[in-house]
Design a binder for these strands. Structure first.
Length: 579
DNA sequence: GCCGTTTTCGGCCCGACTGTTTTCAGTCG
């Protein structure tokens, strides 16, 4: 059993125990256990199998035995019995915003609600509103939650599909009959969520490749299988499509299936204007334009060149002006992962992170970073074990000591992710903020303010001279929780006026600020910081998702503060502090 | 369920907000 599967089972046990009204500290122990299993540095399932789990904090006798059982038998009797008491679909209900274990338990015991379909029915029929503790507003909120979930049901975050896409791509590229393979579609365009994964291969033997594709270990169910294409569901529910074309067709098919549809329409129109018809198989000459120069097309780049355009990176293909820019040679040179020199906004065990300060520093160093910014939560974020003044001061001292140890080879910046209160004041006074190397200001409470009030609240924080950057501007959780109401253009103006950086939170759950706003921010002169918001050493790698989003927002390395080498970024932070 | 130790039970994380309620329960961060 994989560690992900084991962690999932522990999490589900926690949910079911909560439903049964178990001691909340017991359910928390299971949740903690799940987190440890997910993030443990080392092969925890191997250790579990060999009964070598002793001494891991948070894993006691009970969890140790359960992990051993899962690692050796592939299942857990305790869980099998527990889940047999409830319908399998019950877990869906926990995904509805506004519903917790108590309400779910009430719905289940009084009305036998065991699925979202049941839930919708009893809310609409008026039965739910009659349950003690429920009312019209509760029911309206639940229905809103259901609607949001339905609207986003087919969306997958990048953390859910990235490894899958890489694994399948690798398998395809390793196939003896495949000469070229790519992922196309919205994944290639760097969208923040995707609906499916589209793979493309060039081959002389499509039937062999397709036959092997549907037998990949990642494949759960075959939806369709033909001579040139196949569709399957992967085990995590993501639909994966494969198309096989010839080598000559490959660049055209790659371009076509990458989209976006709107971009394709514009490109085809441009081709027509030049007497060429473009489709997923190639160019054909139309009318009397027989003399058009049809350079041989080997790469996608050649298609654009034939049409008199610079190569347009996939992330830019949204028909938002990229074709005009390509025509005039004005496309930006997009940022690349390798351009990042360091990362700001990361957490440690001091608040809700899973790795210590030293572990985070070592991990960042191993990734080739020159510096690491720590920004643990501030005191108001109780749920995240936010730091009070004394603990923050102790952390600053710890960071200074570690830096002395690094002796210039690596640097840790002492920061804080300070809560923005409802009125726009910050969680620490200016004196303490001034002791820090930098400050990330974020909203973590009172999400439901009217837009004007929320905007004013955030602008007040931006105007605090100690605030270096603004954290996750809209608070959205992709496919789970909508953004709070906030006027982004006004936020951008305020950031520009105060020299405040805006974060591009690189967590696959957030990707916030959204890529659609970065061109405006860039025009106004606002700098971006691509922040992993890492809560573990592994989380540092989320910068990958952030870079994709930044590219989609037309950003170059000079727009992104953490592309600066150590000396220059120190200078930039000092300059901001002096303003 | 885990942890720690004044070695075996008692503590474990707090506050705001909302909606349902007449004093609080549930949810969220």
């Amino acid at each position: 059993m994989t560690r992900e599967a084991a962690a999932e089972i522990l999490n589900r046990i926690a949910l079911l125990l909560e439903l049964k009204g178990e001691n909340p500290f017991k359910t928390r122990a299971y949740k903690m256990g799940a987190e440890i299993v997910e993030s443990y540095a080392g092969d925890i399932m191997q250790l579990a199998a060999e009964e070598k789990l002793a001494g891991i904090k948070g894993i006691g006798d009970a969890l140790r035995d359960k992990l051993h059982e899962m690692a050796t038998t592939g299942k857990l009797e305790f869980y099998e019995k527990l889940k047999a008491e409830f319908p399998e679909t019950l877990f869906e209900l926990f995904e509805i915003s506004g519903l917790g274990p108590k309400k779910i338990a009430a719905l289940y015991t009084t009305l036998k609600v065991g699925s979202i379909a049941d839930l919708k029915r009893v809310c609409e029929s008026g039965e739910a509103a009659k349950i003690s503790g429920f009312g019209d507003k509760t029911v309206a909120k639940i229905l809103e939650g259901i609607a949001f979930r339905e609207e986003h049901a087919s969306e997958f975050r990048l953390d859910q599909v990235y490894a899958l896409a890489q694994n399948i791509l690798e398998a395809l590229r390793g196939h003896p009959d495949v000469s070229r393979a790519e992922v196309c579609g919205s994944f290639r365009r760097g969208k923040e969520v995707v609906h499916d994964l589209d793979f493309l291969v060039s081959t002389k033997h499509p039937e062999r490749v397709i036959g092997d594709f549907v037998k990949l270990p990642e494949v759960e169910k075959i939806i369709a299988q033909g001579g040139t294409k196949a569709s399957v569901y992967a085990s995590n529910g993501v639909q994966c499509d494969l198309r096989a074309v010839s080598s000559a067709e490959f660049p055209f098919a790659l371009n076509y299936f990458t989209g976006s549809k709107e971009h394709n329409v514009m490109v085809r129109q441009r081709a027509l204007d030049q007497g060429l018809s473009l489709n997923e198989y190639g160019f054909t000459v139309v009318g009397d334009h027989a003399s058009t120069d049809m350079a041989t097309v080997h790469e996608e780049r050649d298609i654009y060149r034939t049409l008199g355009l610079d190569y347009i990176e996939p992330e830019l293909r949204e028909n938002t002006g990229e074709i005009e820019a390509a025509e005039r040679g004005k496309l930006p040179r997009l940022i690349e992962l390798e351009n990042l020199r360091g990362v700001f906004h990361n957490h440690t065990t001091a608040s809700d992170g899973k790795a210590t300060l030293r572990e985070m520093a070592e991990a960042a160093r191993e990734l080739g970073m020159q510096y690491l910014g720590i920004a643990d939560h501030s005191k108001s974020s109780f749920q995240a074990n936010g730091l009070h003044e004394d603990r923050l001061r102790a952390q600053i001292a710890e960071i200074r000591a570690l830096n002395a140890e690094f002796d210039g080879h690596f640097h840790i910046f002492a920061g804080s992710e300070v809560d923005i209160h409802k009125d726009g004041t910050l969680d620490f006074d200016d004196g303490l903020l001034a002791e820090l190397d930098y400050v990330v200001a974020s909203v973590h409470s009172v999400f439901n303010l009217p837009e004007a009030e929320m905007t004013a609240r955030i602008i007040r924080a931006i105007e605090n001279p100690h605030v270096t950057m603004l954290g996750h501007v809209t608070g959205r959780l992709l496919a789970q929780r909508p953004a709070y109401a906030v006027n982004i253009p006004k936020i951008i103006d305020a950031a520009a006026a105060n020299g405040t950086i805006i974060e591009l939170n690189a967590s696959a759950w957030r990707l916030d600020m959204d890529w659609r706003w970065w061109r405006l921010a860039k025009e106004k002169g606002v700098k971006c910081s691509i922040n992993p918001d890492a809560h573990s050493t592994h989380g540092l790698q989320d910068v990958l998702f952030g870079v994709r989003a930044a590219r989609k927002g037309w950003l170059t390395r000079s727009d992104v503060i953490n592309c600066l080498p150590l000396g220059e970024v120190e200078e930039a932070l000092r300059a901001k502090a002096k303003r």
